[in-house]
């Protein structure tokens, strides 16, 4: 009964039929993960660059922690955010639990270390290279950060895409803090888990294919923009 062919036709039917529920789920998935990756990038890029440029006591420890947190299990991130946002937790008053905002927060926690750690790596290499030049022009470190980030923009785009990939692919965190509520916090990955639990494997695999397709499309878009920019700037 179950075959890849079956899953493939299911996926096709879902896409062609533009099923309303599916569109809602896809839209929410993208909204949550893109918001998370944008906020994580706004925080992670300057943070990573700052760690790359300044020397301070405990810097090694910060780098180790950032690198280690790249491997943070999503379900642990979800649990931590759940305990913070739960009514019995410190931020319970905000009433954010089981909302898309809670899912964004959990995903930020997951991808911020990836973006910060890899940004640190990329900018540090460039800092070593341009340091003398920049200091001879009396460019302060704060002023050097945008320059270095801009110079590393193509590598950093890949870093951001890696963060987006992790955000859109994880299920453990959003399941706990979102609750997989139909029409409110159900995203692609939690829908896939639900269909798998129901033993509806072709539909689950079909949804998986759609998710993969979407992530591929976003990556293709980023790639083309990057190529175009590279060509124009020579």
């Amino acid at each position: 009964m179950l075959s890849e062919d079956n899953a493939f036709t299911t996926a096709l039917q879902l896409i062609i039929g533009l099923d309303e529920t599916l569109v809602g789920i896809v839209a929410l998935s993208m909204q949550v993960s893109l918001t998370a990756v944008l906020i994580a990038a706004m925080l992670g890029l300057p943070l990573g660059a700052a760690v790359a440029l300044w020397r301070f006591p405990g810097r090694g420890l910060v780098i180790i922690i950032l690198n280690a947190f790249m491997g943070l299990p999503p379900v642990v991130a979800g649990l931590v955010v759940y305990l913070m946002l739960s009514r019995a937790g410190p931020l319970g008053e905000l009433g954010l639990l089981f909302t898309p905002s809670a899912m964004v927060i959990a995903q930020i926690l997951l991808i911020l270390p990836i973006i910060a750690a890899l940004t640190r790596q990329h900018t540090e290499e460039r800092w070593d290279e341009y340091r003398e030049q920049l200091t001879s022009f009396r460019v302060s470190r704060v002023r050097a950060i945008p320059t270095l980030l801009w110079d590393a923009r193509f590598s950093l785009m890949t870093v951001i895409l890696a963060g987006f990939g992790r955000a859109s692919a994880e299920v453990g965190a959003v399941m706990i803090v979102g609750g997989n509520i139909d029409g409110v916090t159900r995203v692609m990955t939690t829908a896939i888990v639900l269909e798998t639990n129901k033993g509806n494997l072709p539909l689950a695999l079909g949804l998986g294919m759609i998710l993969l397709l979407l992530v591929a499309l976003i990556n293709a878009g980023a790639f083309l923009i990057g190529e175009e920019a590279r060509r124009r700037l020579g």
Partner: peptide, 12 residues
């Protein structure tokens, strides 16, 4: 980022 954060909250 801000626009999307607001949109997410509005939906909630």
């Amino acid at each position: 980022g801000l626009a999307m954060a607001f949109a997410t909250n509005a939906a909630a």
